[in-house]
Design a protein around this nucleic acid. Structure first.
Lengths: 240, 240
DNA sequence: CAACAAGCTGCGGGTTTACGCAAGACGGCG
DNA sequence: CGCCGTCTTGCGTAAACCCGCAGCTTGTTG
Protein backbone atom coordinates (compact mmCIF):
# COMPACT_ATOMS: atom_id res chain seq x y z
CA UNK A 1 0.00 0.00 0.00
CA UNK A 2 1.16 3.46 -0.92
CA UNK A 3 0.24 6.73 0.75
CA UNK A 4 0.62 10.21 -0.65
CA UNK A 5 1.01 13.14 1.69
CA UNK A 6 0.25 16.63 0.44
CA UNK A 7 1.22 19.27 2.98
CA UNK A 8 3.27 22.39 2.68
CA UNK A 9 4.65 22.71 6.16
CA UNK A 10 7.74 20.49 6.47
CA UNK A 11 7.20 19.94 10.16
CA UNK A 12 3.68 18.75 9.68
CA UNK A 13 4.77 16.70 6.72
CA UNK A 14 7.26 14.71 8.67
CA UNK A 15 4.83 14.36 11.52
CA UNK A 16 2.29 12.91 9.15
CA UNK A 17 4.89 10.65 7.67
CA UNK A 18 5.60 9.18 11.06
CA UNK A 19 1.95 8.87 11.90
CA UNK A 20 1.29 6.97 8.70
CA UNK A 21 4.16 4.63 9.35
CA UNK A 22 2.98 3.99 12.85
CA UNK A 23 -0.69 3.56 12.04
CA UNK A 24 -0.38 1.61 8.82
CA UNK A 25 2.21 -1.15 8.94
CA UNK A 26 0.76 -2.40 5.68
CA UNK A 27 1.94 0.75 4.02
CA UNK A 28 5.26 0.26 2.30
CA UNK A 29 5.78 3.55 0.51
CA UNK A 30 5.06 7.11 1.49
CA UNK A 31 5.48 9.89 -1.01
CA UNK A 32 5.22 13.57 -0.29
CA UNK A 33 4.20 16.69 -2.12
CA UNK A 34 4.49 20.19 -0.81
CA UNK A 35 1.65 21.84 -2.61
CA UNK A 36 -1.54 21.11 -4.47
CA UNK A 37 -0.09 21.16 -7.94
CA UNK A 38 2.69 18.74 -7.10
CA UNK A 39 0.16 16.63 -5.23
CA UNK A 40 -2.08 16.30 -8.28
CA UNK A 41 0.82 15.32 -10.43
CA UNK A 42 2.12 12.72 -8.00
CA UNK A 43 -1.35 11.32 -7.51
CA UNK A 44 -1.73 10.93 -11.24
CA UNK A 45 1.69 9.41 -11.80
CA UNK A 46 1.34 6.96 -8.97
CA UNK A 47 -2.37 6.38 -9.33
CA UNK A 48 -2.54 7.07 -5.62
CA UNK A 49 -5.50 5.55 -3.87
CA UNK A 50 -4.71 6.88 -0.41
CA UNK A 51 -4.01 10.53 0.20
CA UNK A 52 -3.58 12.74 3.20
CA UNK A 53 -4.20 16.31 2.20
CA UNK A 54 -3.69 19.64 3.87
CA UNK A 55 -6.33 22.19 3.00
CA UNK A 56 -4.54 25.47 3.21
CA UNK A 57 -1.54 25.55 0.92
CA UNK A 58 0.09 28.39 -0.87
CA UNK A 59 0.23 27.22 -4.43
CA UNK A 60 -3.00 25.38 -4.98
CA UNK A 61 -5.16 24.52 -2.08
CA UNK A 62 -6.33 21.13 -0.97
CA UNK A 63 -9.88 21.49 -2.14
CA UNK A 64 -8.92 22.21 -5.72
CA UNK A 65 -6.34 19.47 -5.76
CA UNK A 66 -8.82 16.99 -4.34
CA UNK A 67 -11.40 17.99 -6.88
CA UNK A 68 -9.22 17.21 -9.86
CA UNK A 69 -7.95 14.04 -8.26
CA UNK A 70 -11.44 12.84 -7.55
CA UNK A 71 -12.50 13.76 -11.04
CA UNK A 72 -9.92 11.39 -12.42
CA UNK A 73 -10.37 8.64 -9.86
CA UNK A 74 -13.46 9.04 -7.71
CA UNK A 75 -12.68 6.06 -5.55
CA UNK A 76 -9.55 7.68 -4.19
CA UNK A 77 -9.59 7.95 -0.42
CA UNK A 78 -8.63 11.29 0.93
CA UNK A 79 -8.09 12.37 4.48
CA UNK A 80 -8.23 16.12 4.85
CA UNK A 81 -6.09 17.36 7.65
CA UNK A 82 -6.64 20.97 8.47
CA UNK A 83 -5.99 23.63 11.00
CA UNK A 84 -9.42 25.09 10.73
CA UNK A 85 -13.01 24.13 10.90
CA UNK A 86 -14.25 27.18 9.05
CA UNK A 87 -17.63 26.69 7.54
CA UNK A 88 -16.12 27.80 4.27
CA UNK A 89 -13.77 24.84 4.20
CA UNK A 90 -16.31 22.33 5.36
CA UNK A 91 -18.74 23.51 2.74
CA UNK A 92 -16.03 23.46 0.13
CA UNK A 93 -15.10 19.89 0.88
CA UNK A 94 -18.55 18.45 1.07
CA UNK A 95 -19.34 20.15 -2.19
CA UNK A 96 -16.77 18.11 -4.06
CA UNK A 97 -16.80 14.67 -2.48
CA UNK A 98 -18.08 12.11 -4.99
CA UNK A 99 -21.00 9.87 -4.12
CA UNK A 100 -20.02 7.04 -1.87
CA UNK A 101 -16.37 8.03 -1.63
CA UNK A 102 -14.53 7.34 1.61
CA UNK A 103 -12.98 10.44 3.03
CA UNK A 104 -12.18 12.09 6.30
CA UNK A 105 -11.79 15.49 7.89
CA UNK A 106 -9.55 15.68 10.91
CA UNK A 107 -8.31 18.79 12.63
CA UNK A 108 -4.63 19.32 13.24
CA UNK A 109 -5.40 19.90 16.86
CA UNK A 110 -6.65 16.32 17.21
CA UNK A 111 -4.59 13.85 19.19
CA UNK A 112 -2.13 11.39 17.66
CA UNK A 113 -4.55 8.67 18.53
CA UNK A 114 -7.38 10.23 16.68
CA UNK A 115 -5.32 10.82 13.59
CA UNK A 116 -4.05 7.27 13.47
CA UNK A 117 -7.49 5.89 14.02
CA UNK A 118 -8.81 8.00 11.21
CA UNK A 119 -6.03 6.81 8.92
CA UNK A 120 -6.95 3.19 9.50
CA UNK A 121 -10.68 3.72 9.29
CA UNK A 122 -10.53 5.52 5.99
CA UNK A 123 -7.73 3.76 4.20
CA UNK A 124 -8.40 0.24 5.44
CA UNK A 125 -12.05 0.18 6.37
CA UNK A 126 -13.31 2.63 3.75
CA UNK A 127 -15.26 4.55 6.30
CA UNK A 128 -15.90 8.23 6.52
CA UNK A 129 -14.44 9.93 9.53
CA UNK A 130 -15.36 13.47 10.28
CA UNK A 131 -14.13 15.28 13.31
CA UNK A 132 -16.86 15.96 15.80
CA UNK A 133 -16.37 19.69 15.69
CA UNK A 134 -16.51 19.74 11.93
CA UNK A 135 -19.47 17.44 11.91
CA UNK A 136 -21.46 20.00 13.82
CA UNK A 137 -20.85 22.58 11.16
CA UNK A 138 -21.69 20.17 8.41
CA UNK A 139 -25.08 19.45 9.87
CA UNK A 140 -25.80 23.04 10.34
CA UNK A 141 -24.60 24.10 6.95
CA UNK A 142 -26.26 21.38 4.92
CA UNK A 143 -29.40 20.96 6.88
CA UNK A 144 -31.20 24.23 6.46
CA UNK A 145 -32.17 24.49 10.10
CA UNK A 146 -29.96 27.18 11.41
CA UNK A 147 -27.52 27.64 8.63
CA UNK A 148 -27.56 29.07 5.19
CA UNK A 149 -29.27 27.80 2.11
CA UNK A 150 -27.23 27.22 -0.96
CA UNK A 151 -28.85 30.16 -2.64
CA UNK A 152 -28.04 32.38 0.29
CA UNK A 153 -24.49 31.22 0.30
CA UNK A 154 -24.33 31.77 -3.41
CA UNK A 155 -25.44 35.32 -3.24
CA UNK A 156 -23.13 35.96 -0.35
CA UNK A 157 -20.24 34.90 -2.49
CA UNK A 158 -21.48 37.07 -5.31
CA UNK A 159 -21.56 40.25 -3.34
CA UNK A 160 -18.29 39.32 -1.71
CA UNK A 161 -16.79 39.21 -5.17
CA UNK A 162 -18.09 42.70 -5.70
CA UNK A 163 -20.71 42.08 -8.34
CA UNK A 164 -23.55 44.50 -8.80
CA UNK A 165 -27.12 43.35 -8.39
CA UNK A 166 -27.54 43.45 -12.10
CA UNK A 167 -24.47 41.35 -12.75
CA UNK A 168 -25.61 38.79 -10.22
CA UNK A 169 -29.02 38.65 -11.85
CA UNK A 170 -27.43 37.98 -15.19
CA UNK A 171 -25.05 35.41 -13.83
CA UNK A 172 -27.65 33.47 -11.92
CA UNK A 173 -30.46 33.93 -14.37
CA UNK A 174 -32.73 35.90 -12.07
CA UNK A 175 -34.50 39.18 -12.16
CA UNK A 176 -33.03 42.17 -10.45
CA UNK A 177 -35.71 42.10 -7.81
CA UNK A 178 -35.13 38.46 -6.96
CA UNK A 179 -31.52 39.12 -6.37
CA UNK A 180 -32.45 41.88 -4.01
CA UNK A 181 -34.89 39.61 -2.25
CA UNK A 182 -32.18 37.11 -1.59
CA UNK A 183 -29.98 39.87 -0.37
CA UNK A 184 -32.57 40.89 2.15
CA UNK A 185 -32.84 37.32 3.27
CA UNK A 186 -29.11 37.18 3.68
CA UNK A 187 -28.93 40.43 5.60
CA UNK A 188 -31.56 39.07 7.86
CA UNK A 189 -29.74 35.89 8.67
CA UNK A 190 -26.45 37.61 9.13
CA UNK A 191 -27.97 39.98 11.62
CA UNK A 192 -26.67 42.97 9.85
CA UNK A 193 -29.57 45.09 10.96
CA UNK A 194 -29.22 45.07 14.69
CA UNK A 195 -25.71 46.37 14.58
CA UNK A 196 -26.81 48.77 11.91
CA UNK A 197 -29.94 50.26 13.33
CA UNK A 198 -28.29 50.44 16.69
CA UNK A 199 -29.84 53.66 17.91
CA UNK A 200 -28.92 56.94 16.32
CA UNK A 201 -28.77 57.19 12.64
CA UNK A 202 -25.08 58.02 12.55
CA UNK A 203 -23.62 54.62 13.11
CA UNK A 204 -25.32 53.02 10.19
CA UNK A 205 -23.72 50.32 8.14
CA UNK A 206 -23.53 49.72 4.48
CA UNK A 207 -25.46 46.49 4.51
CA UNK A 208 -23.79 44.96 1.52
CA UNK A 209 -20.26 45.49 2.73
CA UNK A 210 -21.18 44.71 6.28
CA UNK A 211 -22.68 41.39 5.33
CA UNK A 212 -19.43 40.31 3.76
CA UNK A 213 -17.44 41.30 6.79
CA UNK A 214 -19.74 39.57 9.19
CA UNK A 215 -19.59 36.45 7.07
CA UNK A 216 -15.85 36.64 7.20
CA UNK A 217 -15.70 37.08 10.92
CA UNK A 218 -18.04 34.15 11.31
CA UNK A 219 -15.82 32.10 9.03
CA UNK A 220 -18.57 31.53 6.58
CA UNK A 221 -16.15 32.89 4.07
CA UNK A 222 -12.42 32.73 4.08
CA UNK A 223 -9.52 33.50 1.88
CA UNK A 224 -9.50 30.25 0.03
CA UNK A 225 -13.21 30.31 -0.63
CA UNK A 226 -12.84 33.79 -2.06
CA UNK A 227 -9.95 32.74 -4.18
CA UNK A 228 -11.91 29.86 -5.62
CA UNK A 229 -14.95 32.01 -6.22
CA UNK A 230 -12.84 34.61 -7.95
CA UNK A 231 -11.39 31.99 -10.27
CA UNK A 232 -14.87 30.77 -11.14
CA UNK A 233 -15.97 34.30 -11.76
CA UNK A 234 -13.14 34.94 -14.17
CA UNK A 235 -14.01 31.78 -15.98
CA UNK A 236 -17.59 32.85 -16.28
CA UNK A 237 -16.60 36.29 -17.47
CA UNK A 238 -14.63 34.78 -20.30
CA UNK A 239 -17.37 32.39 -21.25
CA UNK A 240 -19.17 35.71 -21.61
CA UNK B 1 18.56 34.23 30.24
CA UNK B 2 14.96 33.25 29.83
CA UNK B 3 12.99 32.92 26.62
CA UNK B 4 9.24 32.84 26.22
CA UNK B 5 7.69 31.06 23.28
CA UNK B 6 4.16 31.93 22.24
CA UNK B 7 2.88 29.61 19.55
CA UNK B 8 -0.27 27.58 19.28
CA UNK B 9 0.88 24.72 17.13
CA UNK B 10 2.57 22.12 19.36
CA UNK B 11 4.81 20.93 16.58
CA UNK B 12 6.11 24.37 15.88
CA UNK B 13 6.40 25.03 19.55
CA UNK B 14 8.71 22.15 20.17
CA UNK B 15 10.66 22.99 17.05
CA UNK B 16 11.17 26.50 18.35
CA UNK B 17 12.13 25.16 21.71
CA UNK B 18 14.90 23.12 20.17
CA UNK B 19 16.04 25.96 18.00
CA UNK B 20 16.31 28.25 21.01
CA UNK B 21 18.29 25.68 22.93
CA UNK B 22 20.64 25.17 20.04
CA UNK B 23 21.12 28.81 19.17
CA UNK B 24 21.30 30.26 22.64
CA UNK B 25 23.44 28.24 25.04
CA UNK B 26 23.22 31.19 27.44
CA UNK B 27 19.53 30.57 27.74
CA UNK B 28 18.74 28.51 30.81
CA UNK B 29 14.94 28.51 30.83
CA UNK B 30 12.36 28.28 28.11
CA UNK B 31 8.71 28.77 28.90
CA UNK B 32 5.84 28.25 26.51
CA UNK B 33 2.39 29.65 25.96
CA UNK B 34 -0.11 28.39 23.48
CA UNK B 35 -2.01 31.55 22.76
CA UNK B 36 -1.80 35.30 23.02
CA UNK B 37 -3.63 35.64 26.28
CA UNK B 38 -1.50 33.08 28.07
CA UNK B 39 1.54 34.67 26.47
CA UNK B 40 0.73 38.08 27.89
CA UNK B 41 0.21 36.67 31.31
CA UNK B 42 3.44 34.69 31.30
CA UNK B 43 5.36 37.65 29.98
CA UNK B 44 4.04 39.78 32.79
CA UNK B 45 4.66 37.23 35.51
CA UNK B 46 8.16 36.47 34.37
CA UNK B 47 9.01 39.95 33.16
CA UNK B 48 10.12 38.29 29.98
CA UNK B 49 12.67 40.23 28.01
CA UNK B 50 12.99 37.77 25.15
CA UNK B 51 9.99 36.46 23.30
CA UNK B 52 9.36 34.44 20.20
CA UNK B 53 5.84 35.05 19.00
CA UNK B 54 3.64 33.45 16.42
CA UNK B 55 1.34 35.88 14.67
CA UNK B 56 -1.69 33.85 13.81
CA UNK B 57 -3.21 32.29 16.88
CA UNK B 58 -6.74 31.39 17.67
CA UNK B 59 -7.36 33.03 20.97
CA UNK B 60 -5.58 36.31 20.75
CA UNK B 61 -3.21 36.96 17.96
CA UNK B 62 0.44 37.85 18.16
CA UNK B 63 0.06 41.47 17.25
CA UNK B 64 -2.34 42.21 20.04
CA UNK B 65 -0.32 40.28 22.54
CA UNK B 66 2.84 42.08 21.47
CA UNK B 67 1.14 45.42 21.76
CA UNK B 68 0.16 44.99 25.36
CA UNK B 69 3.52 43.48 26.23
CA UNK B 70 5.37 46.34 24.64
CA UNK B 71 3.10 48.79 26.34
CA UNK B 72 4.19 47.46 29.69
CA UNK B 73 7.85 46.98 28.84
CA UNK B 74 8.89 48.62 25.59
CA UNK B 75 12.40 47.26 25.73
CA UNK B 76 11.19 43.69 25.38
CA UNK B 77 12.69 41.95 22.40
CA UNK B 78 10.27 40.08 20.26
CA UNK B 79 10.89 37.83 17.34
CA UNK B 80 7.78 37.37 15.23
CA UNK B 81 7.71 34.03 13.53
CA UNK B 82 5.00 33.73 10.98
CA UNK B 83 3.75 31.67 8.13
CA UNK B 84 2.79 34.65 6.08
CA UNK B 85 4.19 37.82 4.74
CA UNK B 86 0.81 39.43 4.15
CA UNK B 87 0.99 43.15 3.96
CA UNK B 88 -1.68 43.24 6.61
CA UNK B 89 0.58 41.53 9.12
CA UNK B 90 3.64 43.52 8.23
CA UNK B 91 1.72 46.73 8.55
CA UNK B 92 0.21 45.57 11.79
CA UNK B 93 3.56 44.81 13.31
CA UNK B 94 5.38 47.91 12.23
CA UNK B 95 2.49 49.93 13.54
CA UNK B 96 3.09 48.79 17.09
CA UNK B 97 6.82 48.46 17.49
CA UNK B 98 8.08 51.04 19.99
CA UNK B 99 10.84 53.46 19.06
CA UNK B 100 14.22 51.85 19.14
CA UNK B 101 12.98 48.44 20.15
CA UNK B 102 14.82 45.39 18.89
CA UNK B 103 12.56 43.02 17.08
CA UNK B 104 12.49 40.60 14.22
CA UNK B 105 10.21 39.13 11.61
CA UNK B 106 11.14 35.73 10.27
CA UNK B 107 9.04 33.50 8.10
CA UNK B 108 8.38 29.93 9.08
CA UNK B 109 9.65 28.86 5.73
CA UNK B 110 13.10 30.18 6.58
CA UNK B 111 15.93 27.75 7.19
CA UNK B 112 17.06 26.58 10.61
CA UNK B 113 20.15 28.61 10.10
CA UNK B 114 18.29 31.78 9.47
CA UNK B 115 16.07 31.33 12.47
CA UNK B 116 18.98 30.68 14.80
CA UNK B 117 20.88 33.61 13.45
CA UNK B 118 17.91 35.84 13.98
CA UNK B 119 17.53 34.60 17.54
CA UNK B 120 21.09 35.54 18.36
CA UNK B 121 21.01 38.86 16.56
CA UNK B 122 17.91 40.05 18.27
CA UNK B 123 18.25 38.64 21.74
CA UNK B 124 22.00 39.04 22.14
CA UNK B 125 22.97 41.83 19.80
CA UNK B 126 19.78 43.87 20.02
CA UNK B 127 19.54 44.17 16.32
CA UNK B 128 16.50 44.20 14.14
CA UNK B 129 16.20 41.32 11.76
CA UNK B 130 13.57 41.39 9.10
CA UNK B 131 13.23 38.67 6.56
CA UNK B 132 14.12 39.83 3.09
CA UNK B 133 10.73 39.02 1.66
CA UNK B 134 8.98 40.90 4.41
CA UNK B 135 11.38 43.76 4.12
CA UNK B 136 10.27 44.33 0.56
CA UNK B 137 6.71 44.75 1.65
CA UNK B 138 7.66 47.03 4.45
CA UNK B 139 9.44 49.40 2.12
CA UNK B 140 6.58 49.40 -0.25
CA UNK B 141 3.92 49.81 2.38
CA UNK B 142 5.59 52.51 4.42
CA UNK B 143 7.33 54.35 1.67
CA UNK B 144 4.50 55.77 -0.35
CA UNK B 145 6.07 54.93 -3.67
CA UNK B 146 4.03 52.08 -4.90
CA UNK B 147 2.00 51.16 -1.89
CA UNK B 148 -0.79 52.67 0.07
CA UNK B 149 -0.85 55.73 2.21
CA UNK B 150 -2.02 55.41 5.75
CA UNK B 151 -5.14 57.31 4.92
CA UNK B 152 -5.87 55.01 2.03
CA UNK B 153 -5.35 52.00 4.18
CA UNK B 154 -7.54 53.53 6.82
CA UNK B 155 -10.43 54.06 4.53
CA UNK B 156 -9.98 50.62 3.08
CA UNK B 157 -10.43 49.19 6.52
CA UNK B 158 -13.45 51.36 7.10
CA UNK B 159 -15.34 50.19 4.07
CA UNK B 160 -14.23 46.64 4.76
CA UNK B 161 -15.92 46.96 8.12
CA UNK B 162 -19.05 47.98 6.30
CA UNK B 163 -19.34 51.58 7.41
CA UNK B 164 -21.27 54.06 5.35
CA UNK B 165 -19.59 57.12 3.95
CA UNK B 166 -21.30 59.21 6.54
CA UNK B 167 -20.19 57.02 9.39
CA UNK B 168 -16.63 57.10 8.14
CA UNK B 169 -16.77 60.86 7.89
CA UNK B 170 -17.91 61.08 11.46
CA UNK B 171 -15.38 58.62 12.71
CA UNK B 172 -12.43 60.22 10.99
CA UNK B 173 -13.55 63.79 11.37
CA UNK B 174 -13.90 64.49 7.69
CA UNK B 175 -16.58 65.79 5.40
CA UNK B 176 -18.62 63.40 3.35
CA UNK B 177 -16.99 64.55 0.19
CA UNK B 178 -13.50 63.99 1.51
CA UNK B 179 -14.33 60.47 2.38
CA UNK B 180 -15.54 59.95 -1.13
CA UNK B 181 -12.40 61.50 -2.50
CA UNK B 182 -10.31 59.04 -0.62
CA UNK B 183 -12.49 56.27 -1.83
CA UNK B 184 -11.88 57.29 -5.40
CA UNK B 185 -8.19 57.33 -4.71
CA UNK B 186 -8.42 53.86 -3.26
CA UNK B 187 -10.42 52.49 -6.16
CA UNK B 188 -7.84 53.92 -8.44
CA UNK B 189 -4.93 52.26 -6.74
CA UNK B 190 -6.68 48.97 -6.40
CA UNK B 191 -7.40 48.94 -10.08
CA UNK B 192 -11.04 48.30 -9.52
CA UNK B 193 -12.01 50.15 -12.66
CA UNK B 194 -10.35 48.14 -15.36
CA UNK B 195 -12.00 44.97 -14.30
CA UNK B 196 -15.19 46.90 -13.84
CA UNK B 197 -15.49 48.94 -16.96
CA UNK B 198 -14.20 46.05 -19.00
CA UNK B 199 -16.32 46.50 -22.08
CA UNK B 200 -20.02 45.84 -21.98
CA UNK B 201 -22.05 47.30 -19.27
CA UNK B 202 -23.21 43.94 -17.91
CA UNK B 203 -20.16 42.81 -16.02
CA UNK B 204 -19.95 45.84 -13.85
CA UNK B 205 -18.67 45.68 -10.31
CA UNK B 206 -19.82 47.30 -7.16
CA UNK B 207 -16.71 49.34 -6.58
CA UNK B 208 -16.95 49.39 -2.84
CA UNK B 209 -17.37 45.68 -2.38
CA UNK B 210 -14.93 44.91 -5.13
CA UNK B 211 -12.25 47.03 -3.55
CA UNK B 212 -12.45 45.02 -0.37
CA UNK B 213 -12.21 41.75 -2.20
CA UNK B 214 -9.28 42.84 -4.28
CA UNK B 215 -7.53 44.01 -1.15
CA UNK B 216 -8.16 40.64 0.37
CA UNK B 217 -6.88 38.75 -2.58
CA UNK B 218 -3.80 40.92 -2.59
CA UNK B 219 -3.33 40.25 1.10
CA UNK B 220 -3.57 43.86 1.96
CA UNK B 221 -6.24 42.77 4.36
CA UNK B 222 -6.59 39.49 6.13
CA UNK B 223 -8.68 37.92 8.77
CA UNK B 224 -6.67 39.07 11.70
CA UNK B 225 -6.53 42.65 10.46
CA UNK B 226 -10.28 42.63 10.09
CA UNK B 227 -10.73 41.17 13.50
CA UNK B 228 -8.60 43.86 15.05
CA UNK B 229 -10.33 46.59 13.13
CA UNK B 230 -13.70 45.27 14.19
CA UNK B 231 -12.66 45.34 17.81
CA UNK B 232 -11.51 48.93 17.48
CA UNK B 233 -14.74 49.81 15.79
CA UNK B 234 -16.81 48.39 18.60
CA UNK B 235 -14.73 50.30 21.06
CA UNK B 236 -15.33 53.49 19.15
CA UNK B 237 -19.01 52.82 18.90
CA UNK B 238 -19.26 52.55 22.64
CA UNK B 239 -17.23 55.68 23.23
CA UNK B 240 -20.13 57.11 21.23
C1' DC C 1 6.24 86.69 -2.59
C1' DA C 2 4.34 84.09 -6.51
C1' DA C 3 3.51 79.65 -8.18
C1' DC C 4 2.26 75.17 -7.70
C1' DA C 5 0.87 70.62 -5.81
C1' DA C 6 -2.03 68.28 -2.52
C1' DG C 7 -5.78 67.87 0.29
C1' DC C 8 -10.49 69.38 2.11
C1' DT C 9 -15.07 70.92 1.14
C1' DG C 10 -19.86 72.08 -1.02
C1' DC C 11 -22.93 71.51 -5.06
C1' DG C 12 -25.32 68.99 -8.44
C1' DG C 13 -26.80 65.00 -10.76
C1' DG C 14 -26.70 60.26 -12.64
C1' DT C 15 -26.63 55.46 -10.96
C1' DT C 16 -27.20 51.78 -7.71
C1' DT C 17 -29.20 49.86 -3.37
C1' DA C 18 -32.66 48.62 -0.13
C1' DC C 19 -37.18 47.59 0.43
C1' DG C 20 -42.53 47.97 0.87
C1' DC C 21 -46.42 46.58 -1.85
C1' DA C 22 -48.80 43.51 -4.69
C1' DA C 23 -49.50 40.36 -8.36
C1' DG C 24 -48.43 35.83 -10.34
C1' DA C 25 -46.19 30.83 -10.32
C1' DC C 26 -45.31 26.41 -8.26
C1' DG C 27 -45.80 22.68 -5.04
C1' DG C 28 -47.77 20.24 -1.18
C1' DC C 29 -51.96 18.85 1.56
C1' DG C 30 -56.34 18.17 3.53
C1' DC D 1 -60.15 21.39 -5.98
C1' DG D 2 -59.10 25.33 -2.83
C1' DC D 3 -55.91 26.95 0.69
C1' DC D 4 -51.31 28.13 2.01
C1' DG D 5 -46.40 28.85 2.07
C1' DT D 6 -42.40 29.82 -0.63
C1' DC D 7 -40.23 31.93 -4.52
C1' DT D 8 -40.23 35.14 -8.30
C1' DT D 9 -41.15 39.45 -10.58
C1' DG D 10 -42.49 44.51 -11.59
C1' DC D 11 -43.28 49.22 -9.84
C1' DG D 12 -42.02 53.02 -7.20
C1' DT D 13 -39.30 55.66 -3.73
C1' DA D 14 -35.98 57.22 -0.47
C1' DA D 15 -31.46 56.79 0.59
C1' DA D 16 -26.69 55.90 -0.44
C1' DC D 17 -23.01 55.95 -3.66
C1' DC D 18 -19.82 57.67 -7.41
C1' DC D 19 -17.90 61.53 -9.28
C1' DG D 20 -17.02 65.97 -12.21
C1' DC D 21 -16.54 70.84 -11.22
C1' DA D 22 -14.88 74.59 -8.64
C1' DG D 23 -13.52 77.24 -4.68
C1' DC D 24 -10.27 77.13 -0.27
C1' DT D 25 -6.64 76.12 2.75
C1' DT D 26 -2.08 74.38 3.40
C1' DG D 27 2.79 73.43 2.74
C1' DT D 28 6.58 73.53 -0.49
C1' DT D 29 9.75 75.59 -3.76
C1' DG D 30 12.18 78.85 -6.67
Amino acid sequence: MKVLIVEDDPLHRSYLHEAVNAALPECDTVIEAENGTAGEKLARDHKSAHIVMDLQMANRNGIEAARTIWKERPETRILFWSNYSDEAYVRGVSRIVPDGAAYGYVLKSASDERLKLALRSIFIESQCVIDREVRGLQQKSLGQTNGFTDSEYEILVDIALGLTDRAIAKRRGLSLRSVQNRLQQLYDKLDVYQSAGDDHEDGRFNLRARAVTVAFLRKLLNYSALERAEAELQEWLEGK
